[in-house]
């Protein structure tokens, strides 16, 4: 079984390379299809024609598209994703700086969705058709239909403007020095450095944007968990457990929740992708210095190398997350044979 799963994972990795190659091609050509003078836009109307021509040469904009793509891909394989005309430095440097902020935000919101989604789902199933269930349904509907940035603005108004209990913008308060960069995750770096006030401050800043991002995932996961728990509660082994006098909390958490997690975990990969795409606007609202905000700036400025890199990284994360979800699912339920599933 283990060998079968390993083979499957290897196969998926090979497939992923081709998917990424196709994605990179698509993004590269679309980003360059806009009939604008990229070099002139980057340097401004007042720059000399020689300077603009030099930038065109440096960026190989005078070459044909396939040639440009070839050189870009050659660089990308070596970890060189080109030069950002906006930030005036290699795109890879930008990614190293901005990606951890978005990943920290994304993982924090995933944590929110996992804990709150499961909790709400279990409670809704346990107390079917009661006020708790109706409330869970309300959260689910509003979470599904409302864009994350609207939640962001609403939470900002409520918790920052009226109640003054959460900060409005940024990753840390002014005056709080970020910990030395090891991972780029302030929580982890703060813990490593023993700067607990930085960890606390980072968490304080994470709560509103992460919760705004998590709500749509909470909505989805709570409904799936509810359905799954309701289904499992009717199973004969649960009836047997109850008949044997096993406490209800143990029945719920030991015998019902674990199998009920499988469908939820299966959608988590997609949820993480949703979190990352929703982060484009949420990062703008909360002035979050992340990768998604960088992507927005790149798109506004027609920074083609940065746009290509942003989409490529998002695609890679999406693929990796889905692969991880498959692996976790097989761990949760050993009966699942990934090779057969594929």
């Amino acid at each position: 079984m283990l060998l079968h799963n390993a083979k499957f994972i290897l196969k998926r990795i090979v497939h992923s390379v081709f998917v990424l190659l196709g994605l990179s091609m698509l993004v590269f050509f679309i980003a360059r299809m806009v009939p604008t003078d990229i070099a002139r836009s980057a340097l401004g109307q007042q720059a000399s024609e020689e300077a603009v021509e030099k930038l065109r040469d440096d960026m190989r904009l005078n070459d044909s598209m396939p040639v440009q793509y070839f050189y870009w891909l050659k660089g990308a394989v070596r970890g060189d994703l080109g030069f950002s005309v906006t930030t005036k430095r290699p795109v890879i440097v930008d990614l190293k700086e901005f990606l951890p902020a978005t990943l920290e935000l994304g993982l924090f919101s995933l944590l929110f969705s996992l804990v709150l989604g499961q909790l709400l789902g279990v409670l809704a199933a346990r107390y079917q058709n009661t006020l708790v269930d109706h409330f869970s349904r309300l959260v689910a509907y509003s979470g599904t239909v409302t864009p994350s940035f609207i939640f962001g603005i609403m939470f900002m108004l409520l918790f920052s403007y009226w109640l003054h209990i959460f900060p409005t913008i940024g990753r840390l308060s002014p005056g709080v020095t970020p910990p030395g960069t090891i991972t780029g995750f302030y929580i982890i770096d703060g813990l490593i450095a023993g700067q607990f006030h930085v960890v606390g401050n980072a968490i304080w800043h994470l709560i509103l944007p992460a919760f705004s991002l998590a709500l749509s995932a909470i909505a989805q996961e709570s409904r799936i968990t509810r359905a799954s728990v309701v289904d499992n509660l009717r199973k004969s082994y649960v009836r047997t457990a109850r008949a044997n006098g096993i406490p209800e909390s143990k029945v719920m958490f030991k015998y019902v929740l674990k199998p009920s997690l499988i469908p939820t975990v299966a959608v988590m990969g997609m949820d993480f992708a949703c979190v990352l795409t929703n982060a484009f606007l949420v990062e703008l609202v909360f002035f979050w210095p992340g990768f998604s905000r960088y992507g927005v700036t790149a798109m506004q400025d027609g920074d083609v190398f940065a746009i290509s890199a942003v989409v490529l990284v998002l695609g890679t994360m999406f693929i990796v997350m889905n692969l991880l979800v498959d692996i976790v699912t097989s761990i949760l339920d050993p009966r699942i044979n990934l090779a057969e599933r594929s």
């Binding site: 002014p174 709080v176 607990f196 006030h197 960890v199 606390g200 401050n201 304080w204």
Partner: peptide, 21 residues
Amino acid sequence: SLLIVCTVGGFGVVAQGAENV
């Protein structure tokens, strides 16, 4: 408890004041 302590500690770090900024 550790998380709560450091989080609450961090919550206390409010740089805003009548600073010359």
